[in-house]
Each structure stands twice: as structure tokens, then as C-alpha cells.
Design a protein around this nucleic acid. Structure first.
Lengths: 369, 369
DNA sequence: TGTTAGCACTCACACCCATTGAGTGCTAAC
DNA sequence: GTTAGCACTCAATGGGTGTGAGTGCTAACA
């Protein structure tokens, strides 16, 4: 792995890049990274010598550190400073060196307490969790909501308001409700509205938004004649909602937590990152996660966006009924406490998944209000 | 007014606090404030002498400045610096000295362009306007949404989902839709749901949420017997929604714009203010506005919250059908460009009011999708 | 009596420069 | 292979000095 990691960066000093990380190098690298995570200060050989029990002198460690730097795991801000981890170093640490952080009982119970929020709508709930969680962790939290594409329609209801407008209410799978006002060309009375509603219900329910068959649509135009304009608007709404899933609900909380890190004491940098994260499109890209990944860690330049080049994101997804419906992640400087962050976010998404199962499982309707 | 403004701060050096601001003092004070708004640097006597056409020497101006300082309108950061306006100085400026800023054609047209956003839901629309507007003005924008209390219910619809739950959909006056899932003790079939819906519609619609008569509620329990639990949940939802109006929708946009001001180059200060504004309860207090006030300016310590003591807020309300439904404001350092901010926010709220009238007027249903 | 020139004084800020100390790399000895 | 010793580097710190913008006071002037 040392090899492939090394290759990744294109380093190939003969005799160096072939070098496996031996146990001692691993311990030294780990010590340096953990120290740097704590202090944000370059770590010197003396500090490393004192902090671990290898019983070797600073001079020896200096040699090893020089090796680690050659291999690309460490960097030196300037000649007479200690070493700081490179992105590659963090990657090595995250993949092979770090120990799993065990959450304390207090942390777990606080996390569980989070789930006691009595909020009916999913989005408000997740948003609120996000806010509190950001205070809990002192990181910035980002996340995404269930994507509409995978959500089925459970119920249509067309409600006439007056002669010129009606409201279309769509209840989805996970019981969130989308609605829109639809202008009427011809007045629709309550009975007609009910008829249209039931036809829509017969033909379009229990299908993911994205998979409504065009043929079905055509047949609907035939069955509900005289209301072409109305139908067009209804389908346009459905279509827009499907499209909207591409900029599906994304959110962030505790964005000012970034200002806690010395990395962002430079106000310009802080502003740049905060603005980047305030844009929904960017956020959407940032929380992207392949479904099979349990936890994804993006370190510094591994993030595609230049604005994220000096921060890391730890992402994990939450599920409802076994299916991934959303993502939550922690944002911090590349120096973030990965071990803790990973355990933490895993625990959170597990709790949320459990909550959602409880909330939306037929067996357990939870509390409505 | 010089007198009352002065009294407000309790200053009463004999022979000084009685002093009216003569024309020259007004010009000097105005010049200093406008200069300070531009540069954020203390303003010296030479600068004042150069900037206005009073044709008096810096020495004379120094005397006048000393007077203005005695009267409480100016402050000196340290002995050998120029003067900066005090909160009282700004207040005087805002109330009596500043000229109305005339918006340029470009500014007006950009503001109008804002209103072209095709978004159906009021809250998304206002939020989006807020974001763009914050980019336009380079200030932080805060605001509040229509208060639910004054909104009437237009339509109830109870939609059974399965044997154990139903969805209650409430369409309000301004066509926003609130919904909740309600657990069922006894299954409710579609017909019963329709019956309950229509009884609710007969008795509770076209009333402001806050004014539902307790007697009506009692009579409803009698008419819809056998569904006490369900009704309780429904009323609880209504009640909660009414209560929710106390922490009605508030929002902010462009909060990182604060970091543009040298006043907030101190990261700790910036963080404090940003966090304050991120809390909905605080925000709610900040946007409070008495209905008759067209524009409200809160300067520095005039804000009750200590966190807002070094910033100013310019607020204005927007209306729908002649009634105040929400507020929008600009947040900046006390040194903000009041003249411009006032014209700007007035124009914005006018535009929004016009938009809302167009959108929700029966005569003009706008576009549903 | 109001205005102004002159002058001494204040004070933040920038700059220079020497010192300090943490940390390195190299070499030679163990 | 490990280590002690040593010369070297370089950011950071702090004292000293000069600069300049700005003031307040005083005395002279219109």
C-alpha cells in the first residue's frame, strides 16, 4: 500500500518508492499526524521521541522523518520547522494507521437524545439535527435529504380553490407533501376534482417519480378529456419535481464553526469556503456519495473543487427501510480528527436510520404531531 | 431635536447641551459621517476642510469638532486620531442630516429583475430573493415570512394513508400548504375522511388560525363522534401551527458578507455576530417591527441584544393586499451606508409587495408551476 | 468675537535589527 | 543501525526609532 500510495503521487526516487512502510515508520507517521491534529503546529523530532515508546533518539527519528518526507507522507513548511502531514500522509493514516475511536457513553447518549426531537416533517427534523449536531462536534455539518427520484407517489389530491385555481397536493412515500397552485382554464368543481384525483391515484401512485411511463401519460390525456391544460400543468409539476431532485434538498449547519480552526483565521479563506458551502449546487456536489460506501473521506485536494482543497469532508449516508435516502458529513480542515469524526458520523447516521425506520415503518407510525 | 437627542444620552454640560446644532455644525457632522462611512478611518479636521465648501480653516473645524464631541455626536478613538461618529451621531445623521439616496436606473432594474423569479412557494421565493439581494447589496439580509396567526385556513383535507395513519393537509389563505401525519386509533375510510374534511371546512375555514372559537371546537367533538383522538390530534396540529407563528419563519442570507467589513476582521467578533444571526429566536427578535413604521433603523446599542451593539439594522416591511405580512432588513456595521440602505430596502419591499399582490390577487392567479 | 496660523504634543504604525529558540541535516564515533 | 555533537536556518519576538496624521492651546488678526 505504501507503494501504491506512493505511485499515486508519481514519486519514484529509485530505492525509495519501493520502500514499504516498516512498523517504526508507521508509528512515527501516526504520532506526527495525531500530534499535528491536536496542536496544528509542525511536529519536531524531539516531540515524536517523547510521545511514543520506541526508545529511539530524536536523531534517528530525524532520519526516518526525512525518509517519510521523501516518500511524500510529510511536508516541511520551511527548513527549520518540524514536519506536517501531506494529504498523502493523511490518506495513509486514514486507511491504515488510525485506530477506531470509541465513542464515550456520554457522546452516545447525547447522540440518542438528538433523536428525541419531536418534529413531524422530515426536512425540518434533519435540519434541526444538523444544527444541534454541529454544536456537538464543533465541526460544520453538511448533508442531503432523500432524493425525490427514488420516492414514490402515494397520493394525489386536487383541491379546487376558486374558479381560476386549484391546489395539487402530492403525498410521497416518505410522507412528505409537495404542493403547487395550478391555474385553471376551465373551472373544476369538487366532483370533477375528485374524479381526476382518483384517476391520477389509480395510474401514477406507487411509482418512483422518475419512472412514470410515457404511455400511461398519453392514456391519461384520453381518459381525462377536456382538461388538457390542467393535466399539462400537473405533469409539468411532477416533471419539475423530478428535475428538482438534481438540486435536491441540501443543507448545512454550524458553518461558523470553521472560524474555530486556526486554518481559517485568514478571513479571506474562511469567507471563500463559507460562501462555497452556502451554494446549493456546490453542496450538492460535495455530499455526493456512492451507495455502497459506508463512510467516505475526502482529504484536501482529493475534493474536486479548488475551494475545498484545504479541507476534508467525512461523509456517511443514512437509510430508510434499508435504502440510502440521504447523506450527512462533517467538514473541517485537513487536520481534522478523522478517527473521532468517522465514529461520530457513523453513529449519527445509524441513529437517523433507526429513527426513520421507526417513523415510517407501517408497524410503528410514531407520533403524528 | 438636537436637544432631545442629546438628552437621550443624559449629557448635560451646562451651556452645551442646550446648544442647537447650527448649520455649520450640521455640515461638519454630516461630512465626517459620510467620510467615515466611506473609509472606515477616523476623519481629521483637514479632511473635513477639504471635503466641503464652508471655506473655513482646519483650526476652526477643530473647534467645532471639539464641540460636537462634547455634545456626544463624535468620539475619538485616541488623542491623536481623527473623530468617528458616535451612535448618537449616526442617529442625528439618519433623522436629520442625510439626503435621500436616489437609486440608479440600473439598481432599480436589477431589483425588478429579482421579481421575475418563477417560484411558486412563497417561502422559497422570498429566500431566493434574499440570497440574490444580499449579493446585490453586499450586506447581510435578514427577514421574516408571513405570520401564520393572521392567515386564514382555506381548506382542510384529511387523506387516509393506511389503517394506522392519515395525512391532514391544510391550505391557507396565501396558498401555502401545511401538512402533518396523524396516527389513527380507529381506521378511517375514504368516505369518513371526506365527511370529516367537509365538516372541518364548514366550521373552521376563513378564520385566522388564532381566532378559532373554543365553542366551535366543542360542537365539532359532538358532531364528529367516535373520532375524539383524531380530532384532538387535528386541533393540536392547528394549535401548534398557531404557536409556531411565534417563531415564525425567519431567515438570513449572505451572512458571510459581514466578513467584507473591516469591522469584522476580528474573527471572534464576526463569529459571534454570525452565530447570533443564525439562531432563529434571535433573528425573530431582530426583525420585529411595529406595523406603522415604514422603515426602522436600529443603530448599534439601540439594538437590545449586546451581540448587535456594534452593528446596525435597516428594516422595512412588505405587504400583501395592503396588510403587513413580513419584514426584510439589511445588517451591517454601524458605519453602514444608511442613505443607500434605506432607499434600497424600501424599493425592495415595494417590489415584493407588488409581486405578492399580483401573485395572490384573485384577478391574477399568475403561474401555478 | 470669531477665525486662523503656529507650535508643541500625542500616539499608532511601520521599520530595522538583534536575539531567541525550535528544529534541521550532516558527520563522526559508538 | 544508532546516536551525540555541531553548525546552520528561519520564524517569531521585542526593543528602539522615525514618521506622519492629527490634536489642543495660544496668541495674533480682522
Amino acid at each position: 500500500m505504501g507503494v501504491s500510495a506512493n505511485n499515486r503521487d508519481g514519486l519514484c526516487f529509485p530505492g525509495v518508492w519501493i520502500m514499504e512502510l516498516d512498523e517504526r515508520k508507521k508509528v512515527i507517521l501516526g504520532t506526527i499526524i495525531e500530534n499535528y491534529i491536536e496542536t496544528a503546529e509542525p511536529v519536531g523530532s524531539r516531540t515524536v521521541a517523547k510521545r511514543n515508546r520506541l526508545d529511539i533518539s530524536p536523531a534517528t527519528i530525524r532520519n526516518e522523518m526525512a525518509d517519510l518526507e521523501d516518500m511524500g507522507y510529510l511536508e516541511q513548511p520551511h527548513t527549520s520547522a518540524g514536519r506536517i502531514p501531506s494529504n498523502l500522509g493523511y490518506r495513509m493514516y486514514v486507511d491504515h494507521l488510525m485506530k477506531r475511536y470509541e465513542l464515550t457513553a456520554g457522546e452516545i447518549s447525547r447522540m440518542k437524545a438528538l433523536m428525541e426531537l419531536k418534529i413531524a416533517e422530515l426536512d425540518t427534523l434533519i435540519r434541526e439535527i444538523t444544527n444541534i449536531y454541529s454544536r456537538l462536534t464543533n465541526y460544520t455539518v453538511i448533508g442531503s435529504m432523500p432524493e425525490t427520484k427514488k420516492v414514490s407517489i402515494k397520493h394525489f389530491q386536487l383541491v379546487p380553490i376558486d374558479d381560476e385555481a386549484a391546489i395539487l397536493v402530492v403525498v410521497t412515500d416518505n410522507n412528505s407533501v409537495k404542493d403547487t397552485k395550478i391555474p385553471l382554464e376551465t373551472p373544476v368543481d369538487v366532483r370533477t376534482a375528485a374524479r381526476i384525483s382518483s384517476i391520477l391515484n389509480e395510474n401514477l401512485t406507487n411509482l418512483p417519480f422518475g419512472e412514470v411511463d410515457p404511455d400511461v401519460i398519453t392514456s391519461l390525456y384520453a381518459r381525462i378529456s377536456g382538461y388538457d391544460g390542467l393535466l399539462r400543468n400537473i405533469f409539468r409539476f411532477i416533471y419539475d419535481t423530478v428535475e428538482a431532485s438534481d438540486n435536491a434538498e441540501v443543507f448545512h449547519g454550524g458553518i461558523t464553526n470553521l472560524l474555530n480552526f486556526p486554518e481559517y483565521s485568514n478571513i479571506y479563506r474562511a469567507k471563500q469556503l463559507m460562501e462555497y458551502l452556502s451554494d446549493r449546487a456546490n453542496l450538492h456536489r460535495a455530499v455526493a456519495l456512492r451507495e455502497h460506501e459506508p463512510v467516505k473521506i475526502c482529504i484536501g485536494s482529493e475534493n474536486k473543487a479548488a475551494e475545498l482543497a484545504d479541507c476534508s469532508i467525512v461523509l456517511s449516508s443514512y437509510k430508510a427501510n434499508g435504502e440510502v435516502v440521504g447523506t450527512i458529513g462533517l467538514v473541517g480542515p485537513t487536520r481534522m480528527d478523522y478517527s473521532r469524526a468517522v465514529s461520530n458520523i457513523k453513529c449519527l447516521t445509524q441513529q437517523i436510520s433507526r429513527l426513520l425506520d421507526k417513523k415510517y415503518n407501517k408497524k410503528n407510525t410514531g407520533k403524528g404531531v
